[in-house]
Structure formats: structure tokens, C-alpha cells
Design a protein around this nucleic acid. Sequence first.
DNA 1: TCTGGGGTCCTAGGACCC
DNA 2: TCTGGGGTCCTAGGACCC
Length: 358
Amino acid sequence: MADWVLHVDMDQFIAAVEVLRRPELAGVPVIVGGRGDPTERAVVSTASYEARAFGIGSGMPLKIAARKAPDDAVFLPVDHEAYESASAQVMETLRGLPGVVLEVIGWDECFLGVATDDPEQVAGAAQAAVLEATGLHCSVGIGDNKVRAKIATEFGKPRGVFRLTEANWFAVMGERGTRELWGVGPKVQKRLAARGIDTVRELADADESELVAEFGPRMGVWYHGLGSGIGPAVVDDTPWVARSHSRETTFQQNLTTAAEVEAALAELAGQAFDDCAAEGRPVIRVHLKVRYAPFETKTLGRKLAEPTTRRQDVIDAALELGASLDADREVRLLGVRAEMAMPAGGDGVERTPVRGRI
DNA sequence: TCTGGGGTCCTAGGACCC
DNA sequence: TCTGGGGTCCTAGGACCC
């Protein structure tokens, strides 16, 4: 029996959860975001397939979505608790499949590691189990590692299964743009294009030492391998250990006075601290996320002199960072992040350069 | 036309040490 | 006037993901 990696991804997860509890919304363009008021400053979390047909997608400001949306579109507020509980139900169901190791990546996706001669059968069983337990549909990517499984899922959507391995990698991906690779964003795509590397095959054929010179020893090697679909194949169910917690908020009106900004900084820093304190771990670093007009987000960080378990220390650090902002430019506060000391010995999980939880 | 909220990991460059 | 080589740690910021 061979080892396989399956990537399970819920179809339009948030919108699907909303339709599930309000069946009259089936077939209607549903847009979930912010407090559900399209006149407010907020963005789209998820749009149903019906809404996507009008060019509405996640990350888009609600005000823009409102202009594109047809008259019968429905805007709904984000309901984290509902998605958390649906997510937990999905994960629990998948964990119950025989012989699988499950690694959670996000609310609506995970990897399954399984030894089998028929991965399509396991994929079908996963889809059926999730549908029966939750009423939700998902797509499954089958791969010989995490990178290929993850990319395969896109070809399976919606409600399908797709297998991507070393055998069909170049046939499927070779002529596609580098941006379609997991971990290649707009900036890296540009830097690759500047060196004449536009397609996946060109990336695979590129000179690794040139990529190392451009991106550094780890990312250079990683991107080169990505061109051939190379990536980690071990699915790891080690419990997640958070490294930091942050609080961000969208102010409906920009803060204008120093007193307003200080009050907001103290509030957000205090909340971020509380999330860390709830885990019983000291804070070692504080970051501010701000936006300079017109649209340039920046992060400023400061290491604390000592790891602290005092709320006020974190608030003071945030205020100090706030005082160091460029006063000559229009700046909008977005949020505060508190970075925690790792537990002794860390979490024992080996990292790969793909950002986020892999 | 107006830009979320929650995260992680990597790199460059300076400081410091032997 | 000219000024090593290598290693590690820290800080600040960048990029990407869901």
C-alpha cells in the first residue's frame, strides 16, 4: 500500500453554513462579510457561487460588492461561532475515518494522511461522511505530497476529486503561470517574471543558484522545487501551538485625535494580551499594524526588555510604538499583535517555508 | 471604489563574540 | 592608514496563506 496525502477543502464554506440554517437562501447570491451592512467599511468573507457569477469575491469591500450585486442578493453578518462549530464537526467526522492522520490547516480545510491502494475510494468516503454528518459539500485533492494534493483540489471543485502526482504534474501544471503555485503571491510572481520565469515548467527548469541569489537559501530552493511540485509529504497531527495573537478592527471613521488613537491602542493591546494570558504564556514582543494613506500597510515591532505577564507592560509597549509613528503622514491604526514565548522545547513540529499552517 | 482579521515564516543587516 | 573570518543573536520588515 502506498502513502497518500488528501487535501479536503469545504466548498464555499461560510456561505454553505449560512444556507444550511436558512434553506430559503439556496440558489440566492449570498454575501457574508462584516456586520452584514453593505454601507459599512468591511470586506467580503465569502460569496456564494451565485454571487461570484457577478464578479463578487472574498476580500472585496462590501461597498463594491453592493454595487455589483443583483437586487435579490442577501448580505449577512459574519458569525464566527457558527463556522467554528461547523468546522469542528467536519474535522471530527474526518478524524473518524479508518486509518487516517488529520492535520488541520484552517477553518475549512485539512490534510489527511492515509496508506491505501485506492485513494479515490478514501476521498469519496470522506465526502460522503462529511455530507452525511453536516450537510456540507467538499472537494478533495489527492497527491503524493502536500503541495500536489493542495493544488489538485482546485481542479476538483466543486464537489469533485482530482489526483495530481509526479506522473501528471507537468501535463497539468507545466504551462500554467507561477502564481497558481501555493506560496507564490503577486510579489514573487513579479520577481520571477523579471528573470524570464513565467510558467511552472520554466521555474522547474531554472537555475537553482540563481533563485537562491534572488530569494535566499531557503526560499530559493523551495521555489525551485515547487516548480516540479516537490514538497513535504508527512501529515502531522501534532496539536497546534499558537506563536502570537492579534486584535484588529476596522474603525468606521478614522481616528483623528491622539487621545482616540491611544485609547484604541490600549484596548487592542489589552485584548491581544488577554488572548496570550489565556494560554498562560508570557508576551515577548508587540507589533502594530497601521496603514499610511492611500494604501500602504506597515508593521512596526518592538521586543520587550523582559518577557511579561503584565497587561500594562503590553499596553505601554503599544503606546510607545504608537508614539513613534510618522506624524507627518495620514495614518490609520489597524491592530495590535502580541507575540508569545514558546513553551519549553517548542512544539516539536518541523517547519516548511509555506506560510501558515502546513 | 475602497480596501478584514487572524495567523506564520523568511531575509537582510547590524551587533557582538571568539 | 588600514583594518581577518566565522558564527550567532536580534531587530525590523516583507510576503504569503486562510
